[in-house]
Simulated scan of single mutants.
Amino acid sequence: MSNQVSPFHIAIPVHNLDDCRAFYRDVLNCEEGRSSDHWVDFNFFGHQLVIHYKPQSQEDLHTNPVDGKSVPVPHYGVVLNWSDFHDFADHLRLKKVNFIIEPYVRFEGQTGEQVTMFFLDPAGNALEFKAFKDQTQLFAK
């Protein structure tokens, strides 16, 4: 397996295609790509994200404890660089995004020190954006 970083592809279910399309395009500023009446793909920070229509589920949001916070499971997101993270957090605040976990420093002073934040898209999918103080500690133990 190569250490080269390649774009990933993720497909997520949404029960409200139009609302989610607007959220990813207008709030997160993701460029829209191809689409149909059942799916839309986006450039999600250099990766391909596809939102697919699926009828709404009644499943509750599950969480696991991490660093004293209730982290939503499942979740997906992107690792940004330190300054981009803070700029993006400010942008989300201006867009009035409701955070599940407000931006904060996790594992402060420890291996893997990072800033992180969690919020939901309009379909209830949990997103995490993070940045490492020292990017070389992304996979450090």
Rank of each mutant, 00 (worst) to 15 (best):
A11T: 10
N29W: 01
V115T: 11
D90S: 14
I100P: 00
S36P: 05
G68Y: 04
N29G: 02
P55Q: 15
Q4I: 15
D19N: 11
F85W: 03
R34Y: 05
V66A: 05
S57I: 14
H47N: 15
V105E: 06
Y76I: 09
V115N: 08
N64E: 10
H52Q: 14
F44V: 13
A123C: 12
P122K: 03
V71A: 02
H52L: 11
D37Q: 13
P72E: 04
H15L: 06
P103S: 10
Q135E: 15
C20H: 02
R93P: 01
S6M: 10
D19C: 06
K133A: 01
F107P: 00
W39L: 05
Q137K: 12
V71G: 01
H52W: 07
M1L: 09
R93I: 04
C20A: 11
F139T: 15
Y104G: 05
H9C: 08
V14G: 01
G46L: 13
H47T: 12
K130G: 06
D67M: 05
Q114E: 11
L17Y: 00
R21W: 04
H62E: 14
I100N: 00
V50K: 03
G68P: 03
Y53H: 12
F45G: 07
P13Y: 04
F129G: 02
E32T: 14
H86K: 14
R106F: 03
H86D: 15
G124T: 09
F139Y: 13
D87C: 10
I100C: 01
G68V: 05
L28V: 11
D60Y: 06
N43E: 14
D18N: 08
G46R: 12
S35E: 04
L61Q: 10
I51K: 00
S2M: 10
R25F: 02
F45W: 14
R106E: 08
S83R: 09
K96M: 06
K95E: 13
Q56W: 07
D26V: 09
F88S: 05
D26Q: 11
Q4M: 13
W82F: 06
Q114C: 09
P7S: 08
I12C: 05
A22T: 08
K130E: 06
D60I: 10
D90C: 09
G33L: 09
F42W: 04
P65Q: 08
Q48P: 00
F132A: 08
T116E: 05
D60G: 09
V78M: 09
F139S: 13
S70P: 01
G33M: 07
E32W: 01
M1T: 12
D26E: 15
T111S: 10
W39G: 05
T116N: 09
D41I: 03
N125W: 07
V27C: 05
G46K: 10
E113Q: 12
P65E: 11
D37S: 14
N125D: 10
S83Q: 15
P103F: 06
A131Y: 02
I12K: 02
S57E: 15
D121P: 03
E31T: 14
F45P: 06
Y53E: 04
I12T: 11
S6F: 09
S57Y: 15
H86E: 15
N29H: 06
H91I: 03
A123P: 05
F45C: 10
G33S: 07
D60F: 07
R93Q: 13
D41L: 01
S6E: 08
I51V: 15
L94F: 03
I10P: 04
H9M: 10
P103V: 07
V73D: 08
